[in-house]
Simulated assay, not measured.
Amino acid sequence: MGKSRIFAYLQLTRPANVITAIADIWAGFAVAGAWDYMVTDYAYGEQTFWWNLLWLSLSTIGLYAGGVAFNDVADAELDAIERPERPIPSGRVSKSKATVMSTALLAFGVICAAQVNWISAGLALAVAVLAVLYDYWGKHQSFLGPINMGLCRTGNLLLGISVAPEVLEKIWMIGLIPLIYVAAITMISRGEVHGKNRKALYFGGMMYGSIFLAIFAMAYIQGYRYLQVLPFLALLAYMIVPPLMKAIQTQEPKFIGKSVKAAVISLIIVNASIAAAFSGWPVGIIVLLLLPISLWLAKKFAVT
């Protein structure tokens, strides 16, 4: 397989976006308190933390890559008209081979999660089903579609928390944060091709605002950590607010696409903020280190 063919298959998986999914897992570990026990775990000669982090990181890579690749399989005919440069309509990847790759990646994601515990495996399977459901049905639903997409991210964050099932049982409601954030992105993204979706842009902006308030409130409940979260939230605002304002002003597909791209990449900052709220700023920084990797990949591969 030549380099150009490999590049085409990688394009299907949206590598920059995959990094944002890894951030979900790492933030989930922070919510579960797993990072707090990392040093103790290592001191006693155990490596449970690292194995669990590896398995769930690999799991989300498979789930996200498989899910977005299936999106291109489902959209092959439409892309032939609107985005003929994509791997499948351009003929660089056949639809049948893309289907096989997507299925294998989703299966890989579930198998990796099963190495941690059965709750993780169940959540991974749910994410896989939700991703395929969105690709073939959800994206065509004006109201349920954004919720469907948001649930994929919710499941991904909960997948990280599932490393500690007893914590997951108590704090599963935190999954509303990625649900609302991604639902907002999905709603805004519907103007990428034709534009003229000002109402969706305004409503998406309000949903972003609710995320800021929710993360700050969680950090405030944790005590002094609300001060540690503020720099992360400031960075998040810097990343997503200017592109959104430009999109609202112009309503042009080009600027709407830039707003969506910024919001997708900024999922890492959302996760870093959550990590800082539960485990302090050092863990938030660890999650944030994924941002330059995602930004670099975003220059090589399409995000949307």
Rank of each mutant, 00 (worst) to 15 (best):
K261H: 14
K254Y: 13
R86T: 08
L158S: 04
V100I: 15
F232S: 02
P15K: 07
G223S: 10
I177D: 00
M38G: 03
A43K: 13
H140G: 08
Y134P: 04
P146E: 03
A275R: 04
I22R: 06
T40V: 10
T154L: 08
H194P: 04
N117M: 09
F49E: 01
M173G: 12
W118I: 10
P282C: 09
K199C: 06
D79N: 07
Y9S: 05
W26C: 00
M245A: 14
L233Y: 02
D79W: 05
P242D: 11
V229W: 04
F7N: 12
M206L: 15
G28H: 02
L244W: 13
H194E: 13
F212P: 01
T186C: 12
A131Y: 02
A30T: 10
T60N: 10
M187C: 05
G160I: 08
Y9G: 05
A200L: 11
T250L: 14
F216H: 10
A126F: 14
A275E: 06
L158D: 02
H140A: 13
I22Y: 08
W35C: 03
S96L: 12
P15W: 08
C112T: 10
L106C: 01
P178R: 09
R86M: 09
S210I: 11
M239P: 00
A128S: 14
G145H: 07
K139F: 05
A272G: 02
G67S: 03
F232M: 13
P253N: 02
D72P: 03
L123Q: 05
G109V: 01
R83S: 13
R92Y: 11
N71I: 09
A23E: 01
E82A: 14
E77K: 14
S266T: 05
L63D: 05
F212G: 02
G209S: 12
N17F: 01
L54Q: 06
